[in-house]
Amino acid sequence: MSSHDSATPPSHDGPIRSRTLVRTSTVDLITCALLLGLAALLGWDSWRTGAAWAPDGPEAGYFPFYLALLLGAASLFGMARAILSHDVITEAFLTRDQIGRVAAVFLPTLAFVLLTQVLGIYVASFLLVAGFMTVVGRIRWWISLFTAVVFSGLMFAVFEIAFNVIMPKGPLEAAFGY
């Protein structure tokens, strides 16, 4: 009924801990600072639009302006907390190993979106699936290639032909008259 592969929880607490690259408190500080900047920008723009209280209620910029103030205040509070607890929390936000793995999925995704703009989504998705499986997954190239062809073909059949959902297309689709 049930068998017994030993079930291991994800083991990132192993004896060899990867070196901390960024600490959580640092990222907390940076994020809050960025949010504060955003709040200032949006608040200023809303002030320009008009953030006063007209006789018939608030002007267009009224809500965004005060929301920006709230966001700014909360971010300032977050910054203060991050600075004050700086020497207490040394928890790792990312270790060297982790950033490698996150980059291994983020950079291909970025390339995929760029390629979608040039080659259309179906060719780009073929390249992403085939490339990711071979390079990151170290799966045999012919399995990867086969999966990628089937997947992209299936997507094309489902969206372009069956459901009529228009997707960005490139030179290859144009050559086939789509």
């Binding site: 995929f112 979608t116 989504i121 998705s125 699936v129 499986m133 990151v136 969206f159 997707m167």
Partner: peptide, 19 residues
């Protein structure tokens, strides 16, 4: 393997966002 599923999910997300 997750390496096969991850890119497919990314493509589905992009299709969804574009559509």
């Amino acid at each position: 393997p997750f390496a096969a599923i991850a890119p497919m999910i990314i493509v589905s997300c992009a299709i969804g966002a574009y559509a």
